[in-house]
Design a protein around this nucleic acid. Sequence first.
DNA 1: TAGTCGTTTAGAATGATTCAAAATCTCAAT
DNA 2: ATTGAGATTTTGAATCATTCTAAACGACTA
Lengths: 146, 146
Amino acid sequence: MIQNLNKHERESLHEALAKSGQKITPQREIVYTVLLAQRDHPTVDEVYHRALETMPGLSLATVYNCLETFVGCGLVRQVNHERESTRYCPNLAPHAHFRDESTGRVHDIELPKEILEQLTKILPADFETETIEISFQGRTKSSTQN
Amino acid sequence: MIQNLNKHERESLHEALAKSGQKITPQREIVYTVLLAQRDHPTVDEVYHRALETMPGLSLATVYNCLETFVGCGLVRQVNHERESTRYCPNLAPHAHFRDESTGRVHDIELPKEILEQLTKILPADFETETIEISFQGRTKSSTQN
DNA sequence: TAGTCGTTTAGAATGATTCAAAATCTCAAT
DNA sequence: ATTGAGATTTTGAATCATTCTAAACGACTA
Ligand SMILES: [Mn+2]
Ligand SMILES: [Mn+2]
Ligand SMILES: [Zn+2]
Ligand SMILES: [Zn+2]
């Protein structure tokens, strides 16, 4: 069902883990593969169920562990909406999120860097930004919900 | 310790509640007063403890109820950061939030409307935005932490 | 006074996430 | 090959913010 990682993807995974002194494991590889296979910002539980198809004995705690590891080494971003379950995103480019309130689906929105620059300008001088999060909530009119 | 609502504030409260067919109660008034008294984006528990000073019998469930009511009638915004407790903000002007990672404190950042306009332009044509949330994470260099 | 309806309250339930401890795995050193 | 150390995975319990339930309360009206 789910393709393996290609050479480049496996390399990203290896590098990111190595940088923080950690190794590729079968579980980490499958969890990362699940994230790349369908970039729909799945929850932990969704990742867990998708990964189970490939690795039946996998535990939910391990999925939590793997995702936490990936976030820690910068491979994956967490995406939160209010108090709903945390979702995970392997898109490393700076981007915003659009949450469709009728479906709950989260879409990536490309973010021109000029906007990020402008945003940092609205801050008082002594505020040093590490990250900026931008999220839209609304509806999509599209007939074909992709 | 905590001032009463002034005429204008009480009027906002009354109007917002009336619009959705609800009434001012002593509990709602105190909870709203607490929010206005210190605009530091308190959690439910913080609101609860502050309100207890004025109304010793108040229950935590009621604070949850009041805040939910206020959010429902547009008097107050929820502010979430990752999976931490929800915080509450009575600032109705469009604004962003800056979260100081060394203190956990959340500051309001005035948001020029031109930036909001620009942001809606980066969306695909069939995405209709209802709300936009912008939040900064970082540190403040200021000696006098206000 | 009795009834209705919204609100408040206490306490139980929920559910995503985290924690603790035992089991398993990896791999280097013997 | 065997052993031991350290990392990882697993299971099941614990946490805790929030939501739910049902009973009590209050204001208002008939
Ligand atoms: Mn499940
Ligand atoms: Mn407390
Ligand atoms: Zn994303
Ligand atoms: Zn605010």
